[in-house]
Write a protein that binds this DNA or RNA. Structure first.
Length: 271
DNA sequence: CGAGCAACCTGCATGC
DNA sequence: TGCATGCAGGTTGCTC
């Protein structure tokens, strides 16, 4: 489910319900996530008030007086705001009850996600400290990207999906961005010229912000924190459309695997 | 150091 | 209908 737009949509959805609210009760039904949820999580979080909510890459950060709850949704994770009496279903692993009768529920069939409480400043945590710039920050600019790509031989698709290059570009949006910029996904990163880096920065920002505006992309089952789906999938040009005609030139879209991820591109439009 | 890829899981589509 | 296979939105942490 989640790339950056889905995480951002989730953040915006849950924030009004939990900011300034105190955690009253935590129920952990399944602690075997990406990393086992620490037995101390309950103790550390109970009675804490959520002061602010943030996003760093695809991590959600709920900051309290003493630290930060880091939440990652992995491949299939989801957070919803519910009424307190809602019965848990299969894969509803964690419930956090707040003082205003709100229930924040974490659901994750594949259990690739994570929940951990980090005392103190979370940006120094090993999971966050190596991350590259946010796509909408001024640090992410054409000169930066060009310098970062210098002499690298890995395919540009892998390069822009690398969290140390820029955060938040997953498989769907990387595929789309490369189609829109007409760059072949296998192009060695070091061969990108300045103009292409400029287009990449601009297009990454454009695609991500449009996807956020559309409420994210619903593939199988993504719904936001209120149960509404996203609508960006209607704007997808090539992702999931291998073999079908290119929207620009009608040539059949080709499929390949880059770093074990499915990749769709137009062999004529993308160079 | 970088590159490549196995691993963590369940659900679903497909093919026999 | 049942079973095996392969694939899926992410990221870490091995080995080479």
């Amino acid at each position: 489910m989640p790339e950056l737009p889905e995480v951002e949509t989730t953040l915006q959805g849950i924030t009004p319900y939990i900011v300034q609210q105190q955690v009253q009760r935590i129920i952990i039904r399944e602690s075997r996530l990406r990393w086992p949820i620490s037995p101390q999580l309950k103790t550390l979080l109970k009675q804490q008030t959520v002061l602010t909510t943030k996003r760093r890459g695809k991590y959600l950060l709920l900051q309290t007086e003493t630290g930060t709850l880091l939440i990652h949704l992995g491949m299939s994770g989801r957070l919803r705001i519910l009424l307190t009496k809602t019965q848990p279903q299969k894969h509803d692993h964690v419930d956090i009850y707040f003082s205003n009768q709100t229930l924040l529920r974490y659901t994750d069939p594949r259990r690739f996600g994570a929940l951990l409480f980090v005392p103190g400043h979370p940006l120094q945590h090993p999971l966050l400290d190596h991350l590259g710039p946010e796509p909408f920050s001024t640090l992410f600019n054409p000169n930066y990207l060009y310098a970062k790509a210098n002499r690298k031989t890995l395919p540009v698709k892998q390069f822009i999906m690398d969290n140390t290059t820029v955060v938040g570009v997953g498989n769907i949006y990387a595929t789309e961005v490369l189609f829109l910029t007409k760059i072949h996904p296998c192009t060695p990163a070091g061969q990108l010229n300045k103009r292409q880096c400029h287009r990449l920065v601009k297009t990454i920002q454009q695609v991500l912000s449009r996807a956020i505006q559309a409420g994210g992309t619903t593939l199988k089952d993504f719904v936001n924190s209120h149960g509404k789906p996203g609508y960006f999938q209607q704007h997808l040009q090539v992702y999931g459309r291998g073999g079908r005609p290119c929207p620009l030139c009608q040539t059949p879209l080709q499929e390949t695997r880059i770093s074990n991820r499915n990749t769709v591109y137009c062999p004529v439009c993308q160079h």
